[in-house]
Structure formats: C-alpha cells, structure tokens
Simulated scan of single mutants.
Amino acid sequence: MNDRSAIGMDVAAGRSGDIEARTTLVGDQQLMVAVKRGDESRPPLLLFNGIGANWELAKPFLEALSDTKAIIFDMPGIGGSSSPRRPYRPSGVARLAARLVADLGHQEIDVAGVSWGGGIAQEFAHQNPRLCRRLVLAATSPGAIMIPGRPRALLRMATPRRYWDKAHMTKIAPEIYGGSFKNDPSMIGRHVEGMFGASSVGYVYQLLAMVGWTSLPWLRSLRQPTLILMGRDDPLVPLANGHVLARLIPNARLEVIDDGHLFIVTRPVETARRIERFLVHER
C-alpha cells in the first residue's frame, strides 16, 4: 500500500438516491468510495466496514441516516477496490483513510467501525486525535487479545467462500451472525443480494492485517467521546468485549442491541438512530 496522498482521476462513477459511488486513486491504490450526502455544516461520518464486505452491504444503514454525511470505501481487494500490491497493517489502512479524507477536503470527521473495521477505526482515532472528533465501535473488540467467539463460527470466517457462494452464505449465516439471521431467515436472502464478492488475496490480506494487532496498550490514551454498540447474541464477538472497551476507553459508554453480529444490517434504522443521537444531539 503506497503512502502517497495524491488523488487521481475518477475512472468510474455511479449515483443511487443520496449516495454517489466512484472509483478513485489514492496514491497507486484504486478505491471504490461511496459518499452519502448530508449536512455539510457537521463533520461527516467515516465508516470502516467488516471483513470481506463491499460498501453496498452498508447501504441500508447509510440510507437510514437522517441528515449525516457519510463516507465509506471498499478495502483493497474487496468489492470495487483493486487488490493491494502487498500485505498491510491497520496502521497503513488508517493512513490511507486519512489521506482520502484530506483529499475530500475534510478537516474534522467522526469515525465508525464495524467488526474488523472497528479495529481500523480504533487505529485511526489513535493516529489522528485532532482529525477524529468522535468514535463509534460496533460489534468489535480490542483485536488479537480479546474474549473469543464460538470456535465453529470463527472457523467459518477463515475463508471468503460465503462472499462468492451465496448458497453457502445462506446455510451458515445463522450460525456465524446469530440474532435476526437466526430468528428470521428471510433476512439472509436480502443480505446475500447485496454481496459483490471479495478476492481471495484481498480477504487473506484482511485476515493477516489483524494478526497480532491489539489496541489494549493505548486504549486509555483515546480522548474521543466513544459509543460502543454490541449485539446481545453475537457468536463472533461476544458482548463481554464491549465491556472491556468501555472500561478502558476513558470517555466511552456501551449500548447493547438485542440482535446478533450484523445489527447494522438487520437493524439499520435503530443503529442509525443511536449513532446520530450520539453524534448530533449529545454534547
């Protein structure tokens, strides 16, 4: 991943409602970037997605935001972003994201991360204490040193097969995600329709990025007001990890959603309402 910050010419663009998506060069890395329009007088929300997830999987959540501008991009090798030339670490993704934010013209942002993306969000907030105003961590943990999920569910996450084999995803989703996917199987089909695949290289690099990474040594140094959202029935990241984060981050609080790992997908309106209340209405 190259650290040069020049943003290149758009090579593709598309628009859907209030969301505009385009591929953009940040250094020599081509990224698929989606921007949901919103109130320009407030800092936008930069969202880091989960492992293997293309930005469209977060579309229901983006559309549920009432008037918050939001930015999301596919990780290298995922969705519409080109495969990276070499493995990377969370620190490299955080630097890449900071350069993207600067090139988009923002001097202050709020940051949210879901699952795998929660680790990147923590790293971003740690690297950029002045750029990052507020932090939202959803269904995530402090990294390698965490309270582990169910072994069988974690084993299923070792391969990207669920992103290109939709029948496989339909079969395993209740087991790995819990919550509404277990209680209402009809939700699985709607989620599957939004998947656009993850390359094997991109997925493996995402797995490798988090090997040995942990935020525990510096969580107490984070000064951003932080909202931690956790699912009550999460097979991958047990609720106890949210209690750890809330205890170690000085200005943090934990809210529990009565759902599974992907509550941002299964309960987009409730999730958006909680996050916007935290970002907009609480001082």
Rank of each mutant, 00 (worst) to 15 (best):
L57A: 12
R42T: 14
G52V: 11
E40C: 09
P44A: 13
W55L: 15
D39P: 06
N49P: 01
N54W: 00
L31F: 15
P43W: 07
W55I: 13
G52E: 06
G38M: 01
P43I: 11
V33W: 07
P60A: 09
N54P: 12
G50L: 10
G38W: 00
K59E: 07
L57S: 08
G52A: 11
L62C: 00
L46Q: 01
P44F: 06
I51G: 12
E56H: 10
V33I: 15
S66F: 05
S66I: 15
V33H: 11
N54R: 00
L45C: 04
S41A: 15
N49L: 07
P44E: 07
S41N: 13
L31P: 07
A34Y: 02
D39M: 02
L46P: 01
K36V: 04
N49W: 03
P60W: 09
N49C: 09
Q30E: 12
A64P: 04
L65K: 01
I51D: 04
N54A: 14
M32K: 08
F48W: 11
L65I: 14
S41F: 03
Q30I: 06
D39I: 02
G38A: 05
N49K: 02
Q30L: 12
N54H: 11
L47P: 03
P44S: 12
L45A: 08
L31A: 05
P44N: 09
L46T: 05
L47M: 13
A53H: 11
W55T: 06
G52K: 08
A53L: 13
G38F: 00
A53N: 14
G50Q: 08
L65F: 14
R42K: 15
L31D: 03
N49F: 04
S41H: 11
E56V: 13
S66Q: 15
G52Q: 08
R37Y: 11
E63I: 10
A64S: 14
R37K: 09
L46I: 14
D67T: 09
L47H: 09
F48V: 03
P44K: 05
E40P: 15
V35Y: 01
E56T: 15
S66C: 03
M32F: 13
L65P: 00
D39H: 04
L57P: 03
S66A: 12
R42F: 01
E63W: 04
R37H: 14
E63H: 06
A64E: 00
Q30V: 06
K59L: 08
G50F: 06
G38I: 03
E63V: 14
F61Y: 09
G50N: 12
S41M: 07
G50A: 13
D67Y: 02
V35F: 01
L57G: 08
F61Q: 00
A34E: 10
A34I: 00
V35L: 10
A34K: 03
P43C: 10
A64H: 02
D67K: 12
P44M: 05
L46H: 07
P44R: 03
V33Y: 10
R42Y: 04
R42D: 12
E63D: 13
K59M: 07
G52D: 11
G38H: 01
S41K: 12
Q30P: 02
D39Y: 00
G38S: 04
E56W: 06
D39T: 11
G50P: 02
